[in-house]
Amino acid sequence: MTQKPTHVRTTALMFGAVFIGGAVGSLLRELFSVSIPHAGFLTQTFGINIVACFILGWLYSVRNRVHAHVLHLGTVGFCGGLSTFSSFVSELERLALSNIWVAASAAALEIAVGLAAAILGEAIGRRFHPPRATE
């Protein structure tokens, strides 16, 4: 988080929001990783990471409009819990066992699509919730 609002004190409520968001995000991740069949040349984490990037971009486009606790619940908690880097690299490792180039292209593709999803989420967020004139 490069632009953390400094006026927000670290409270139990803040960590509570992060905990709830992280727990819900993790459970959704578990649900999707079990129930969604995936292509063999992609990582299992592809779909959830893309969705998390999209939601995060959307949330950051309205970051000045919502309460800090809600922002923490959504960004740090939910999106952070939904997306995962550790399972992503372990999936890459699994792909690399059979073919290193498949793993490398899966990594490049997933990161590129993730960045695109975050940009798209931000653009849609700006379109639906344009900044107020006073901001």
């Binding site: 995000g25 578990e30 990037c53 939601i55 550790s86 993730g114 960045l115 975050a118």
Partner: peptide, 30 residues
């Protein structure tokens, strides 16, 4: 990384997945 039972995965996979983040990494790169 191939043969892991469902039960054994739970707590550590939940923790590592919640701990690490792909979305913040992507957004911070942007």
């Amino acid at each position: 990384s191939i043969e892991i039972g469902e039960e054994q995965k739970r707590l550590v996979f939940g923790f590592c997945g919640g701990f690490t983040t792909f979305s913040s990494f992507a957004y911070q790169s942007l």
